[in-house]
């Protein structure tokens, strides 16, 4: 089997939307002597790209994106990341994202979709979960040297916490290095301007695009 046909098999495995198939293909790739980074970039990543394209074209739907992202995530954690740790392979992610649903709010479906899409988009994602205090966003962002912080809120009473987060990063003078994105049903462009966040997106695939734009502008 040639490298090219293995890349092809890896990409196709993602289109099965089945974690077992992706895990198996990844193992096979390693056995063939491919490196984990190669498997991700030239194999699985291409599969995700195809799915992303078919989503844009209207052939695939959100659940296809999520299922594919989940399958790749499983292969990463079960097969590829352990291998990278073994070989001390340093992969530089496109960017590091810290994401969470703000304090007082436990509505996290939107945040979860964004996190999955960001992973599928090649970003390193640190998901803090839900009901996350402002200080925790700050702490984690410093710890992982985050490029982007994403804060999600659904309720009119928790929306203002996004403002608190912006202020907290302001007062620690971190805004040069860390871009803040906000999201959630009640978030509007006007709100983003009002609180001085860097950006927002209406939905998950848009969010990943916007995040990548922010990263490009940064570098």
């Amino acid at each position: 089997m040639t490298k090219e046909s293995m890349y092809h098999e890896l990409a196709n495995s993602v289109l099965s939307f089945d974690a077992d198939v992706v895990v198996q293909a990844s193992r096979k790739g390693l056995e063939m002597g491919l490196g984990p980074t190669e498997i991700i970039t030239d194999g699985l990543g291409k599969g995700l790209e195809t799915i992303g394209k078919k989503f844009e074209e209207g052939e695939f739907f959100l659940m296809h994106l999520m299922a594919a992202a989940d399958a790749v995530k499983t292969a990463m954690s079960e097969v590829l990341e352990p291998e990278m740790a073994k070989t001390n392979a340093e992969t530089k992610p496109l960017g590091r994202v810290v994401i969470g649903t703000v304090a007082g709010d436990i509505h996290d479906i939107g945040k979860n979709i964004v996190a999955a899409m960001a992973i599928a988009g090649g970003l390193e994602v640190h998901d803090l979960g839900k009901d996350v205090p402002v200080a925790e966003f700050l702490r984690k962002a410093k710890e992982v040297r985050a490029d982007i912080v994403g804060a999600s809120a659904l309720l009119s009473t928790t929306l203002p916490i996004q403002h608190d987060i912006v202020r907290a990063f302001d007062s620690e003078r971190l805004r040069g290095n860390v871009k803040i994105m906000v999201g959630g049903a009640p978030v509007t462009e006007e709100w983003v301007r009002e609180i001085g966040a860097d950006s927002f997106a209406e939905n998950a695939s848009e969010a990943v695009k916007v995040a990548k734009q922010l990263l490009n502008a940064k570098s």
Binding site: F55, G58, F61, L62, M63, G110, I113, A185, E202, N203, A204
Partner: peptide
Amino acid sequence: TMNMRTTLC
């Protein structure tokens, strides 16, 4: 219901 193209609820 969720819109599976736009994630609209």
